[in-house]
Design a protein around this nucleic acid. Structure first.
Length: 404
DNA sequence: CCTCCACCGGAACTTACGGAGT
DNA sequence: ACTCCGTAAGTTCCGGTGGAGG
């Protein structure tokens, strides 16, 4: 009885399943990236002049999610800066994920902070932070390479285009003792086309396209990684091929495949089983989806939750609803809860946001005489959505009624 | 072939908030 | 103490628009 905790700790210490679980984590960068040899080489060629203290060309990497863009960039830059250290050449690199730091202010301060400038998280103007960054850069020498992962999130915000533009020509604002090179990463082709021509020609001096992995390639990648991650013989024969097949169905997403494999292993371990079976992979798929949904739904603003709840109710009654129908239902909910309702325009905006978050799918349809609207389907798992919604005490009551 | 519905979606603006610089 | 700043959520205003029905 008293040893329940000890048992848990002991089990954690000697994992039967994993040897090095962390090599399956999303931000782990392996020493080798099979099937990305030409991209690695190409990017290395582009950045190598930094070793001679010359400004490397800017590069733009694009391809769908999980095609190895980030891993290629990180691996090349890790190796490059290692070489630079050996030769005593001043080359630094800064990695910023724009999606995590969405706004121009936060992106600028992330770069500045990576270079050792202390920046308050609010209170200054973007211009002021940018000035501090420049001041720092002017005191440096050699080459600084800035990686902007998921750059497509930058121009979506106001001032984002401006920041991108300033960054592409930052070298003209510096004295010449330091050079800044940019590596942009995006999975949106539309982004590349939406760029101002002068930004595109500068950021995309070199453009590298990453094709999706094929199913056999995914299988190969997983097999290599699995050999390192798991104890010998714990994987059932079908596990790796299944992960590869499921991920291949989603346009060859390697991160997805690795997630499936890792979570399947974690599940097997939690259940105290000695082997990872195909059944665990299917369960992993569900768990990953539930976690994703709950993460998103839990952090939604109140009115977005109510809109989502309205969608679920209407779908329960049959046919996919239109924006107007959702709005009517939503308004009834707010009356019931004694709240002010937001405008139709806002609800329309919330619906697009939920679409982008992968909670629902909507397509714009024209019903001729009867107007043009969106036809909205729930994309996420209904039960997962309801479970996450009921974590909000304000919303929970209504969710209960829906279940009964 | 034209109309006109029921929205779509861009843009500028408000409000409330937490915080910085001087 | 005063002014300025960015962010998130929301509002106001408004120019589109695909296609069924007249």
């Amino acid at each position: 009885m008293t040893d329940a905790l000890e048992e848990v700790f002991a089990a954690a210490l000697k994992s039967r399943i994993f040897k090095k679980r962390w090599v399956l984590l999303p931000d782990y960068v392996p020493e080798e990236l099979p099937h990305r040899e030409s991209e690695l080489r190409r990017l290395a060629e582009v950045l190598a002049p930094a070793l001679r203290g010359e400004k490397p060309s800017n590069a733009l990497l694009y391809g769908l999610t999980g095609t190895g863009k980030t891993a290629v960039a990180r691996l090349v830059l890790m190796r490059l800066s290692k070489r630079a250290r050996e030769y005593g050449v001043p080359v630094r690199y800064v990695y910023v994920n724009v999606r995590h730091r969405e706004t121009p202010y936060r992106v600028t301060s992330a770069i500045a902070e990576a270079l050792g400038v202390r920046v308050p998280f609010t209170g200054l103007s973007v211009g002021e932070v940018y000035e501090r960054l420049l001041r720092r850069l002017r005191r440096m020498q050699g080459v600084v390479i800035v990686v902007l992962d998921e750059v497509d999130f930058l121009p979506k915000r106001s001032g984002g285009q401006d920041l991108l533009y300033r960054l592409t020509r930052v070298n003209q604002e510096l004295g010449g003792s330091v050079w800044v090179g940019l590596v942009g990463i995006t999975n949106s082709l539309g982004f590349v086309e939406s760029l101002e021509p002068r930004v595109r020609s500068s950021l995309g001096e070199v453009e590298l396209v990453f094709p999706p992995y094929t199913a056999p390639q995914l299988k190969d990648i997983l097999e290599r990684r699995a050999r390192v991650a798991f104890n010998p013989g714990v994987l059932d024969e079908g596990v790796v091929p299944l992960c590869a097949a499921l991920a291949a169905r989603e346009h060859g997403d390697a991160r997805r495949a690795l997630d499936l494999l890792r979570v399947a292993g974690e599940l097997a371990e939690r259940r105290g089983e000695a082997r990872v079976r195909e059944e665990h992979v299917y369960a992993a798929r569900m768990e990953i989806e539930r976690d994703r949904v709950s993460e998103v739904v839990r952090t939604l603003p109140l009115h977005a939750k109510l809109v989502l709840l309205s969608l679920v109710s209407l779908i329960d009654e049959g046919r996919p609803p239109s924006t107007g129908e959702i709005y009517e239902h939503y308004k009834r909910l707010t009356v019931e809860l004694g709240l002010e309702s937001v405008t139709l325009r806002r609800v329309s905006g919330i619906l697009s946001e939920l679409d982008m978050l992968g909670i629902l799918r909507s397509r714009v349809v024209s019903r001729g005489r009867y107007g043009k609207t969106r036809e909205i389907h729930l994309d996420a798992d209904r039960e997962a959505v309801l479970a996450s919604l009921s974590e909000d005490p304000m919303v929970a009551r209504i969710v209960e009624r829906l279940k009964g």
